[in-house]
């Protein structure tokens, strides 16, 4: 706080602190708490009360229908018949309205019941999708690491500065394109009549249903999030003193040993950050599975959450689903930090 004030002055530091507060409370803690709260209750209505509310609903419907009949009658030519009709309908509406008022007086308000029930509602098929999503996100992370570590090392330590800048540029250019466009590109490539199957066809292979089998989501996801692995690793490898690599080689270490004993231990914080980012992005991705499955393949867990919220309008179960995913991600982060033996401070570096 004092150092903040000494570098930005009192006014600016107050503004900064205020904005940070709004961000932390209003955009992280608040929504999260609301979601957790939502996930912990249900509206419960007793048996008789349910019947009453059904009756009320029905009566409201009848009132609406009668209102239509009334406006029909009013459209008729002026006559005694018309006046009688309108009077009859108005009478009927009034009786129903009074019944509604009576019933509403007796209606019991639904009560909020707090319980963990929402967390037990996940059926076997949804739980399987949850596990599959986590497993796929782990696999995306592993593949991204295997692909990115050599690239990051080559750019940071092997390439000349000019070449390194070139490689970086070519890595960044595709990522300056909108994520949706990139996913659609994969859709075109992996579609049943897409580029990949066209090329397979030339070689006499039968076309492979990439999208239907769900592998399309996986491929597009690896592509979509791979760069989030490159940069953290690059940043840490870059700070490794090159003479350490040479010293290890001089003392007889093989390439594998150099990476295992010198480079990877040094790059651990970067690798951990890369893995966490890639995992979080793929486990929480909605756009990629939504475009790539399009209802022809099994959905991802994020799609289930979306459906709970916006299609079954069941915010309580939706919140429980979403919070389950949050917990899984947090567990993954701590596992990663444990596995790499890095603390929060190392990651912050």
């Amino acid at each position: 706080m004092n150092s903040l004030r000494s570098s930005f002055g009192p006014v600016l530091s107050l503004v900064i602190m205020g904005l940070v507060g709004v961000w932390v409370v209003g955009m992280i803690i608040g929504p999260q708490l609301i979601m957790v709260e939502q996930s912990l209750w249900n509206k419960e209505i007793g048996g008789e009360a349910a019947q009453i509310s059904t009756r009320i609903d029905r009566l409201y419907n009848e009132v609406d229908t009668l209102a239509f009949d009334k406006s029909d009658a009013e459209a008729l030519d002026e006559s005694t018949d018309r006046t009688e009709k309108i009077a009859a309908i108005t009478a009927e509406i009034d009786t129903r309205k009074s019944t509604i008022t009576e019933l509403e007086a007796t209606e019991v308000k639904p009560i909020k019941v707090y319980s963990f029930r929402n967390y037990t509602l996940m059926g076997a098929s949804h739980f399987f999708i949850f596990l599959k999503t986590i497993a796929a996100a782990v696999a995306v992370t592993v593949i991204a690491f295997v692909v990115c570590y050599p690239i990051a090392f080559a750019v940071a330590k092997v390439a000349t500065p000019g070449k390194a800048a070139m490689i970086m540029l070519f890595l960044i250019i595709p990522y300056s394109i909108n994520e949706l466009l990139r996913i659609f590109a994969w859709l075109m490539i992996l579609d049943n009549n897409g580029v990949a199957n066209l090329i397979l066809g030339w070689f006499g292979f039968e076309s492979i249903p990439f999208l239907g089998s769900g592998s399309g989501v996986f491929i597009a996801m690896v592509y979509a999030y791979i760069l989030f692995m490159v940069f953290p690793i690059y940043n840490t490898v870059e700070t490794l003193d090159g003479s350490q690599i040479e010293a290890a080689r001089d003392m007889g270490a093989s390439t594998w040993q150099i990476h295992r004993k010198i480079v990877i231990p040094h790059a651990k914080p970067g690798i951990a950050v890369g893995c966490i980012m890639t995992f979080m992005l793929s486990a929480g991705s909605f756009a990629v599975p939504n475009i790539m499955t399009r209802g022809i393949a099994e959905p991802w867990f994020t799609q289930l959450i979306y459906n709970k919220f916006f299609e079954s309008s069941n915010w309580n179960t939706g919140s429980a689903y979403a919070f389950t995913l949050v917990i899984a991600c947090i567990v993954f982060i701590f596992m990663m930090m444990r596995f790499f033996g890095v603390g929060i401070k190392d990651i912050a570096k």
């Binding site: 003193d241 003479s243 350490q244 040479e246 010293a247 080689r249 001089d250 003392m251 010198i262």
Partner: peptide
Amino acid sequence: DKRPTALIFQSLALF
């Protein structure tokens, strides 16, 4: 790695 030499770097390059 195969030469009978060992190099001490200016930066020492301790691990």
